[in-house]
Each structure stands twice: as structure tokens, then as C-alpha cells.
């Protein structure tokens, strides 16, 4: 599904990734763990083709790095669902409109299909009652759930989460992790980037540790069936 083969990426003199190789299968849960500046976000930006590798190959599905036109790049991004630490919601649109935008961008659905798809995604993240709210009227956890709804609304094969709990207080972070775990258990591959070991272990997936742009170690995950319950005192969003 996603393969990094001897990937090196430089930003001027700085070496962000140094000959990194790893592979992720369909439906797998993978966590990239490492301190700030280790090169984790560079990995995500390489996957979404925001940047190209200095050397080596990044393969995402059938998309190979370095050969994509702008329209192919857009097509690749439409197959991914991306969640950012800072949510990246449009503040001049309601929660519903933010999620609907992803459906419109997909371009595959008639106008009549937009509303049910968006409502289904909002129900999945427990935000249907906030559909008319604007992002600045939401808490951090709610913003991230809205961002997750936007990422999953088109049912992507892979969800990329860049430090999704980084800007959240612990309670909200637990909720978001539980939500991501549930989405993964429903079949989507999940690639999560974090600086926090407890987040990595809470998801129960394979963990790749990156330090100074190099893969330091790989830990096998507990697997979806054996995955540990998320953190403490958490009730899944859907049950509330």
C-alpha cells in the first residue's frame, strides 16, 4: 500500500530523512514515533506529494513519487484522508460545510448524495448536533473530530494522522484516539505520527521509531484484535 524505498530528503544542508525504508500493508495500523524534528512529518508530506524525495522511491498505491502531474497528485490526495494537529478547518464554514467540501472535491457524488454522506460521517464522530457550528465555536476535541469526519467522509483506504492529539487536552485526546482506533477496526489503514509513546502503544499497531531522519527500531503491534483499550476513563464517542 505505502512503500518507502531508500528515501532520502534534504532541505538545503539539513538532512530530514536518511535512506529510510519501510512498508505498510492494506488495513494496517502503523505509528511513526519520534521526537520533534525526527522527520516524521516529512514522511507524511512525501506520502501526500507535497514534497518529492531527494533520492529513493515513495510508492502510494499505484502512485510513484517524482512522476506525478498536478492532476495525478490531486487524485492521489483524494484517496487519502489526512488529519492535522492544527485541524486545518475553514473558519468561515460550518462543520457541515467543512465536511461537505471534501465530498465536493471528490467530485463523484451528486448533490443529493452530499447531505447523507456528510451526516453519516458526523454521526460517526458524534458531531451531528454541531453541524451548524463554526470551528471557532467548537472545543479542541470537537474540532479534531470534525477534521476526522472530513478525513473519513469519502471512505479513504488510508488515513494519515499527523499528531492528531497534539493540541488536545487528555480527555479529548483519548476520545480522538478511540475514534481513530474504531475507524481503523472498520477497515481503513491508519498511519499515525506522534511524539508520544503512550499514544503509539494505545493504538496497538506496529511502531516505527524515527530519530534524526533514520529508522531506529520497529516494534510489532498487538494487532487489532489484541489492541489495548485506549488510555484511561474513555467511553467511545458513539456510545455517549
Amino acid at each position: 500500500m505505502i512503500t518507502f524505498d531508500e528515501v532520502t530528503r534534504r532541505f538545503g544542508e539539513r538532512l530530514a530523512l536518511d535512506s529510510v525504508s519501510w512498508h505498510m500493508d492494506e488495513g494496517e495500523c502503523l505509528v511513526l514515533l519520534g521526537p520533534s524534528g525526527a522527520g516524521k512529518t516529512t514522511v507524511l508530506r512525501l506520502i501526500t506529494h507535497e514534497i518529492k524525495p531527494t533520492s529513493g522511491t515513495v510508492l502510494v498505491g499505484t502512485f510513484r513519487s517524482g512522476r506525478l502531474s498536478r492532476s495525478q497528485r490531486a487524485l492521489l490526495r483524494r484517496t487519502l484522508g489526512v488529519i492535522y494537529e492544527d485541524f486545518r478547518l475553514l473558519n468561515d464554514r460550518t462543520v457541515f460545510e467543512n465536511v461537505a467540501l471534501a465530498v465536493r472535491i471528490m467530485g463523484r457524488f451528486a448533490t443529493s448524495e452530499v447531505v447523507p454522506r456528510v451526516m453519516y460521517a458526523l454521526e460517526e464522530v458524534g458531531l451531528q448536533h454541531k453541524q451548524t457550528a463554526y470551528p471557532n465555536e467548537l472545543s479542541g476535541g470537537e474540532k479534531q473530530r470534525a477534521a476526522i469526519a472530513r478525513a473519513i467522509v469519502n471512505r479513504p483506504a488510508v488515513i494519515l494522522a499527523d499528531e492528531p492529539t497534539g493540541a488536545l487536552e487528555p480527555g479529548s485526546a483519548d476520545e480522538v484516539l478511540a475514534l481513530l482506533k474504531r475507524i481503523h477496526l472498520e477497515g481503513a489503514a491508519l498511519l499515525l505520527v506522534t511524539t508520544r509513546r503512550e499514544v503509539a502503544h494505545a493504538l496497538g499497531g506496529r511502531v516505527i521509531t524515527i530519530v534524526d531522519g533514520r529508522v531506529r527500531e520497529t516494534e510489532a503491534g498487538a494487532g487489532p484484535a489484541l489492541a489495548a483499550p485506549i488510555a484511561t476513563g474513555l467511553r467511545p464517542v458513539a456510545e455517549r
Binding site: R70, A74, L75, R77, R78, I105, M106, R150
Partner: peptide
């Protein structure tokens, strides 16, 4: 710009 960047990240084509 922020909106354009977000749309581009979501996979919007230049035409869109």
C-alpha cells in the same frame, strides 16, 4: 491562501 492550501491538501484539482 489558507483555504486554497486546505483544498489542495484535500485533493482538489486546479480547476475546482
Amino acid at each position: 491562501r489558507p483555504q486554497v492550501e486546505i483544498m489542495s491538501r484535500l485533493g482538489a484539482t486546479d480547476r475546482f
